[in-house]
């Protein structure tokens, strides 16, 4: 079994970080995982994306044309990735930053005002974690406990003081009902 998740948004929305959290969750359950960032000059202020692949066997290509899931944090990312997700895949949409409905009916779409939820918690930079939690809840890739461990691992060291707020964001994402 292999899963590919593309996470896309503006530079500064924590696209690479949230990918790292997902990678830590896969590592936590003993899977193979590859975290592959877009690292071109387009990252500065433009769009950013990263691909996280986890699998039970040696991982081949670090990038895929058609991912099994996509977290899209803004309008350009929705426009780019909606058509790319495989049939029956997952599309997590940040409705706070997008201005249209999801067109496809053959995928599992979760649309949530993630930036607003993050602002209610007190920091819009938590948007990424809210959205990741929504993906995990919809897809059941990992359990909530594994996500909590992954989050702590990803924030080890200098960012340790951010754990509490991120845990709330994770909880809110899991609790979201459309």
């Amino acid at each position: 079994m292999q899963n590919e998740t593309v996470i896309a948004g503006f530079g500064g929305q924590g696209v690479l970080f949230v990918g790292k959290v997902l990678a830590h969750a896969a590592l936590e359950v003993g899977m193979e995982v590859t975290w592959f960032p877009s690292y071109g000059p387009e990252m500065r202020g433009g769009t950013a994306n990263c691909t996280v692949i986890f699998s039970n066997e040696e991982i081949g290509s670090p990038q895929v044309l058609n991912p099994t899931s996509a977290i899209v944090m803004n309008q350009p990312s929705l426009d780019k990735y909606e058509d790319m997700v495989v049939k029956d895949g997952y599309l997590i949409v940040n409705t706070s930053m997008t201005n249209r409905e999801v067109k496809r009916k053959d995928i599992h779409a979760v649309c949530l005002p993630a930036t607003e939820i993050a602002e209610e918690i007190g920091d819009k930079r938590l948007t990424n974690i809210v959205m990741l939690a929504a993906l995990i809840k919809a897809s059941d890739f990992f359990g909530q406990a594994e996500m909590e461990t992954a989050l702590k691992k990803s924030l080890e060291g200098k960012k340790n003081d951010l754990v509490a707020a991120n845990m709330i964001a994770l909880q809110k994402g899991f609790e979201f009902r459309a």
């Binding site: 790292k20 990678a23 590592l27 193979e32 995982v33 590859t34 975290w35 592959f36 960032p37 690292y39 991982i59 670090p62």
Partner: peptide, 10 residues
Amino acid sequence: DGSIGQMMEP
């Protein structure tokens, strides 16, 4: 190559 330099894996 650049992809192996920039990616993360266990």
